[in-house]
């Protein structure tokens, strides 16, 4: 394909995909009722009053802090459990390895909707209801992180580990000093994917958390979205505020994500 044509197509698709988000900005900062004006309005007016009024009505800082606590702890734990699990799957032979593989894979297939009732019971018996732990521990591992690390570790030449083994380097040290640094893209991808799911979590904290003081941002924003239903600009502003942090983290980590998933099953082990 010719280069100019490719470039044009790329630009068109990119713009088409981002358009709804762009339009949210137009509605949030535009004239009243711009969502439905015919002909459509495509230029944002940058009236930030609605955004400001939303900010004034929410205890934003407290909720942002809660979300940061939950998301950061979840990410750290997912990296830990994911790297260990991925390493076990790729490098260690033990009976039951394929069972563990199925266990991790099967979690993705469990229908989530009705599960929350028995999950509530489990959290109750672990005395975890209405704590930060309720939003962290159940999500402290993920199938995708385990598989990402597995794929990455499988790509590392076996000789690395053999040398390490001969040199008397422990597994922990090998993992920390050799394998993990080489798997940096897998780390970035895990950070991004965990951030997305943890930050956007909504139903779970709504049911498992009752005190306002530890509620994450997304829950409070979604409540406000319902409350502002009749005020489009405020509604769009809330949605926009909900999007901004994720977009920010995405901008910082997105360039790693392709290299992160390029591994494992796609490349044969030497």
């Amino acid at each position: 394909m010719r280069a100019p044509l490719t470039l044009i197509l790329r630009a068109v698709i990119g713009m088409a995909w981002i358009f709804p988000v762009y339009w949210l900005i137009v509605v949030a900062t535009g004239a009243r009722g711009s969502a439905y004006s015919i002909p459509p309005v495509f230029v944002p007016l940058f009236h930030f009053l609605p955004v400001a009024s939303v900010l004034a009505h929410t205890h934003l800082l407290q909720h942002v802090l809660n979300s940061v606590i939950v998301t950061t702890s979840t990410i750290v734990l997912v990296l830990f459990t994911g790297a260990l699990g991925g390493y076990a799957l790729s490098e260690v032979r033990f009976p039951g390895r394929s069972l563990y593989f199925l266990l991790a894979l099967g979690v993705m297939m469990l229908p989530q909707q009705a599960l929350m009732v028995p999950q509530y019971v489990v959290l109750y018996h672990l005395r975890m209801l209405n704590t930060y732990a309720a939003m962290i521990i159940p999500f402290a591992t993920s199938t995708s992180s385990i598989f990402l690390f597995r794929q990455f570790f499988m790509r590392l030449p076996t000789s690395y580990r053999d040398i390490a083994s001969v040199e008397g380097v422990s597994t922990a040290r090998y993992l920390w000093r050799v394998a993990l640094p080489l798997a940096r893209p897998a780390v970035a991808a895990t950070v991004l994917l965990t951030f997305i799911s943890s930050w956007n979590m909504f139903q779970w904290p709504l049911v498992m958390i009752s005190s306002k003081s530890i509620q994450p941002l997304e829950v409070s924003l979604t409540f406000y979205m319902q409350a502002f239903e009749g005020h489009w600009r405020q509604l769009a502003s809330v949605a926009l505020l909900a999007l901004l942090p994720v977009i920010g983290v995405f901008a910082l980590t997105q360039r790693y994500i392709v290299s992160a998933v390029a591994g494992g099953e796609l490349a044969q082990k030497e």
Binding site: P118, Q119, Y120, V121, Q203
Partner: peptide, 10 residues
């Protein structure tokens, strides 16, 4: 949602 879980948990 919460009520069903709460019943089961007591």
């Amino acid at each position: 949602h919460k009520l069903l879980g709460a019943f089961a948990a007591g």
